[in-house]
Design a protein around this nucleic acid. Structure first.
Lengths: 229, 229, 229, 229
DNA sequence: GATGAATGAGATTTCATTCAT
DNA sequence: AATGAATGAAATCTCATTCAT
């Protein structure tokens, strides 16, 4: 997945699709079991939520026994944190794969991310369910997502700053604020797609988000006031 | 808008703060108890999340007995749906109170909403925790939020359409898409404020959101290409 | 109901059918409410059993409030004992109404009782549900039914003894044993009718019970060995 | 029959009495725990009734933890159905072990069954308490007992029919009706023994039941009109 | 490495009862 | 007389975790 990030941002969101062939060594078996458990947990979290998913169910869903989660991860919290981190991979991959024109990169990011949600609703829902579970004050997942959000914003911030340095992005915007707004727009729009899949016109929402970013950041041309779109 | 607390929209964000005096009639007692339970549930959901909040805790937090929630609401789900609906009131109130210039109204909406979150983090966190809990596929809260999100988007959509009819908002934007993008931006930015309160510069994020909307929707002036901001 | 016992044993099992006209005096209102509660309890016990019937449900089913049962009866146990006693009335009435030839009376009793069950399955089921609840060692209803069963058996025993004195019933049967066997046969056959209504041929079962009693008790004729039936 | 404990029918009424030694394999542990739980449930149901027996009590009574019933049976209903089925074994065993003269077999059945009740009042009371709990319309146990009663009646019916074919039982009786009457007599008489143990003369009741069956079914002899008894 | 038997804390819910209205 | 708000005990069931196999 992350080995071909150049071809297209969207390709980073393609399903992994590894075949489940019986591995040889103990370490491979161990890794395979853990991976199966993480994926099973992701499916169940997407379906029922964090607290309605039991470790026994995860073991069974993965095709193993009720006790395997604790055997491998020690506790439910550890499993969830692992699942949360894995569920962030898609966004990290796409953000880190952005190249070229900083402004265009941000526009591509928006479409890539929303397209990933649209095409991988199960994985996306798992991510959002975990993120939603991180919102209460005492959530054990809060730190995981606080760190992660921070990294994403920092990346976007750097793109904005680079664009400003290259004269591609207006200098009268605050990079940190823009990063927060873009990240928020992606999350909030994605969440709406998942809460009511049929009610939102994906293309219209995606286009609007792109317009927001492009028009807000494009340097106003002195002669041609028409913003390209 | 947040500087003029007299308007009804802003007042909707003020804490309720009614004193708990022993009421006379049965109906008053009933109403008071239910209100106390809803507020207690809101506090606990903000703190611990939906599933880590027990109905017994809610009763105790409200100053009553463990069994009162079921006496009044019949089930935990019914209570949560009630809390979810009440937690939406603030946003509904502010959206419905918007008047005057459609574009300015939308900009005001953004600042009002984010300011409300910044100033009422407990209530806001309750709302977001419930919203997060609505994301899994089988969540009993999904329908409540699907309906609610839809209403909010419809309101915003109407503002956009009105602005287009009055020549204040560009006609090359899709009202439904813009509504989804704005709603998403508010939700996602608000959520980030709650996940990592210290890491986000509220003013910068708020300003960026305002810029996104104003620049994306403002009709490009023929003589003065500089978009005001 | 008990005012016309002579016409036919079966008539004693007819439904009471009193109209529920608003009564005048307080005492009448009180009696009417209690009667309504007892009947409601009977219906609910027949439907759901003793422990699955709550006093609140009884009040509601009777068309009153949740609290009326405790207001009138003080406790659930007191209500149940009252319902149990009322549910025994039908059998008591029919047993006490028997007249004429003792052997024929017993045969009539059998058909009357089983017919009552067949025609009043709701009331009958209430009686049997209460009787079933009396079987555990520590049941609060045990004494009520022990007394009642004893009275029924004593009545039957007297019929048998009277028949023996008149030379109509064989003297080589033990009246007490016969009374227990007849009572048991009625109860056990009735219970089967209620457990699996469709599976039992009422007429065949009833006839068999009659044959059992008639043939077991009839004095063997010296010249005509054929037992009449 | 009860004087010859070697026959399999009677042995079915003997207490199980296996010692509780710690088993080796998981399967043995599982079976042992389940058996202990079923027996504990039987004891408690006999003592307090179905609804007054909690699954936690069953676990404790069996010498295990509160949660084991749900671990093994999943629900209280499943446990009760299992207990009901096990409690029927004694009667099934004795009915299926009957051999030889059909009429005498039925007479033996009566004494065997009532004797079992008299000697094993705890197990018998459990069976009857469950049977009593099956009488309400919506009881989850109804089907279990409907099936069971049907099987018993069918067995008895076949005996009657066989007796008629061999000329041992009168042909002017309906086998199905007789089966219902005999089953009912056993149940109802047994129940009375349990409701008021001291008030019933076991021997007299048992003898009366035997007389009922023998005299009702015996083919009237042409030369010797005296029915033997 | 993997299983699953067993535990016991804790969740939701039901409900008999008390008592103020 | 009647209502129903409120309580708190107790029920069933879920489940993370421990541990023997």
């Amino acid at each position: 997945m992350s080995s071909t990030p150049r071809t297209s941002a969207t390709s980073a969101f393609e399903p992994a699709g590894q075949a489940k062939t019986p591995p040889r060594t103990k370490q491979e078996r161990r890794d395979q079991a853990e991976q199966s458990l993480v994926e099973a947990a992701s499916r169940l979290v997407a379906r029922r939520g964090v607290d309605q998913t039991s470790v026994a169910d995860v073991g069974t869903e993965a095709g193993y026994s009720r006790g395997l989660v604790n055997h491998h991860f020690g506790s439910k919290v550890a499993l969830l944190q692992r699942v949360a981190r894995e569920s962030q991979r898609s966004l990290v991959d796409v953000v880190e794969a952005l190249t070229g024109d900083p402004l265009e990169s941000l526009v591509v990011l928006i479409r890539s991310y929303l397209t990933w949600i649209d095409r991988n609703p199960a994985e996306a829902r798992a991510f959002f369910a975990l993120w939603g579970a991180a919102l209460p004050e005492e959530s054990v997942l809060r730190e995981v997502f606080a760190e992660f959000d921070s990294r994403i914003r920092t990346q976007i911030e750097e793109y904005v700053r680079a664009g400003q340095e290259h004269g591609i992005i207006r200098i009268d915007v605050e990079p940190a604020g823009v990063a927060a707004a873009i990240t928020g727009m992606l999350r909030g729009t994605g969440a709406q797609l998942l809460v009511a899949p049929g009610q939102i016109d994906f293309e219209a929402a995606c286009t609007a988000c792109e317009q927001f970013v492009r028009r807000a950041l494009t340097v106003p041309g002195p002669s041609s006031p028409r913003v390209r779109d």
